[in-house]
């Protein structure tokens, strides 16, 4: 960062806030582009899996489709339903997007590329993802609509239940890493055997639990009972149009990418190379994230929607006992000399 010094001297004390804003923009900008192209990737992949070809009309290979969709949503009229709570109705989409973006502050992209390197990073992420549910609840309640209300109740119960399983899965990770710092968690997976040093090996059941809980947390298929197109129309965002609707989707996809990043940081070794003779770099990180996101799309193309009571049973009666057992197993395992990670 030597070349930045003249600008730094020019701006004086205003440098720090400006530089921070620039760094935030450098994260949010690519993230938004990633979200836009994730929607395209989703439509393409699901199309392929259903023997279709997906969008291919707007631009070469359909590459301009996300822009066209965004433009369409921007131009649309924003309708505020009568009898709704106007203020809450308007801030609800913002409250979905805000925590989804705020959580990115502590994500390390590579060994030195991180906005804030805080010690309680993992806790911060957990807190931010748990805030996202408020947007959904407020949206459902403020819409003054039965479908929206049912959707928001479903979503709230679902997110709160799966957060526990997710938290326990993360407890095993931080037991293994002995740190709450996301950078240190990745560094803890560094070793001479490449892939074999990642936490996915000793914590494989937790990896599965975390991945499935992540799908549930982001209200994605097959756990999309909060949207449930065939039962409750579109769930909590049924009354939203135009940009409000777009913000919900930005939030949902940003959360998906966030979960993918967290999965690769905590179980797949982040920016570490899978084989010892190749250098570690951000490319590995992005490849792992792309793989996890592909899994998300693959799930959506494969599985039918869970029934609501089955969903709750899975969360409370299967995942929480499994994670609790594995916390004890890992704790005991770490006391033996056979813990190699």
């Amino acid at each position: 960062m030597e070349w930045l010094l003249p600008i730094q001297n020019l701006l004086g004390s205003a440098w720090l806030p400006i530089w921070t804003v620039v760094k935030i923009m450098l994260i949010v900008g690519p993230l938004m582009i990633g979200v836009a192209y994730l929607t395209l990737a989703e439509r393409k992949v699901i199309g392929w899996m259903q023997s279709r070809i997906g969008p291919n009309r707007v631009g070469y290979f359909g590459l301009l489709q996300p822009l066209a969709d965004g433009l369409k949503l921007l131009m649309k009229e924003i309708i505020i339903p009568s009898g709704s709570n106007k203020l809450l109705f308007v801030i609800a989409p913002i409250m979905v997007l805000m925590p989804a973006l705020a959580a990115w502050a502590v994500i390390p992209f590579s060994a030195e590329l991180v906005l804030t390197n805080v010690n309680a990073g993992l806790l911060y992420i957990l807190a931010m993802t748990s805030l996202g549910v408020y947007g959904v609840i407020i949206a459902g309640w403020a819409s003054n609509s039965k479908y929206a209300f049912l959707g928001c109740l479903r979503s709230a119960a679902q997110i709160v239940s799966y957060e526990i399983a997710m938290g326990f899965a993360l407890v095993t990770v931080l037991m293994a890493a002995q740190s709450l710092n996301l950078g240190d968690i990745v560094r803890g997976q560094h070793g001479q055997y490449g892939m074999l040093n990642w936490y996915i090996i000793p914590l494989f059941p937790m990896f599965i639990v975390y991945l499935i809980s992540g799908v549930a947390e982001t209200n994605r298929a097959p756990f999309d009972v909060a949207e449930g197109e065939s039962e409750i129309v579109a769930g909590f965002h049924v009354e939203y149009s135009g940009m409000g609707f777009a913000l919900f989707f930005l939030g949902e996809y940003a959360n998906m990418i966030l979960i993918a990043f967290l999965t690769s940081i905590m179980f797949l070794g982040g920016w570490l190379s899978p084989v010892p003779f190749l250098p570690d770099s951000i490319v590995w990180m992005l490849a792992k994230v792309a793989f996890v996101l592909f899994l998300f799309l693959w799930f959506r193309a494969t599985f039918p929607r869970y029934r609501y009571d089955q969903l709750m049973r899975l969360g409370w009666k299967v995942f929480i006992p499994v994670t609790l057992v594995w916390v004890v197993v890992v704790g005991a395992w770490m006391q033996t000399p056979y813990w190699l990670w």
Binding site: W48, M49, Q50, R52, I53, I208, W298, T302, F303
Partner: peptide, 22 residues
Amino acid sequence: LLVELLKGMALTGRYMFARKIT
């Protein structure tokens, strides 16, 4: 071991490379 889920995913995974009928 999620055997049935993996079977389902294998099926959709195979169809990803099948001939497209659009």
